[in-house]
Amino acid sequence: MITFKINDEEVQARPGWTVLETAREYGIEIPTLCFHPAVSSSGACRLCMVELREGSWSKLVASCIYPVAEGLQVYTDTERVRNVRRWVLEMLLAACPASPEIVQLAAKYNVIRSRFASKDPDQTCFVCGLCARVCEEVVGLSAIATVDRGIHKRVGAPFARPTDICVACGSCITICPTGAMQKIFDSVRGEPATALTQLA
């Protein structure tokens, strides 16, 4: 067993666990959106950031992918952690105003309003990629991917070509943290010519 501290409390973890897994084992709350135990973690949403400290040195890491190690000192609710959380949630509120899940999560962390204007009032997808991961890792098909990069990144069919390998198992819809996949689903496997324009 590996022994370390979360919020000054001693915790024990099995080798290979992440900080998040350990925290959940002990009932210590860390918010997540792009994490799901059924698939590999990608560290994309950054809501699970925690602060590591060692003397005067400190650093933020994503707890969903940070491997446990002997003697770590982890803090889950410091000023720096709250600052990242606050801004990610404010930006998510503006990016996905139509998602009740995100509104709820933000409210839980006292983010009620966003300083940013929303560009698409119907948007619910924030491109966490859980749909693509579950399709690849659990279903074994890779019928969904993230397409393009930077601010243009979005969920779509691999190589932007709607695919016929989808078996309509519904895993992506089940795993989607905001319900966005329900809307995207048909366009990923939809008519080839129009699917992408529907997405964008």
Partner: peptide, 10 residues
């Protein structure tokens, strides 16, 4: 940006 993580993309 690759667009993967939210602090960078948004």
């Amino acid at each position: 940006s690759c667009g993967k993580c939210l602090p960078c993309r948004l």
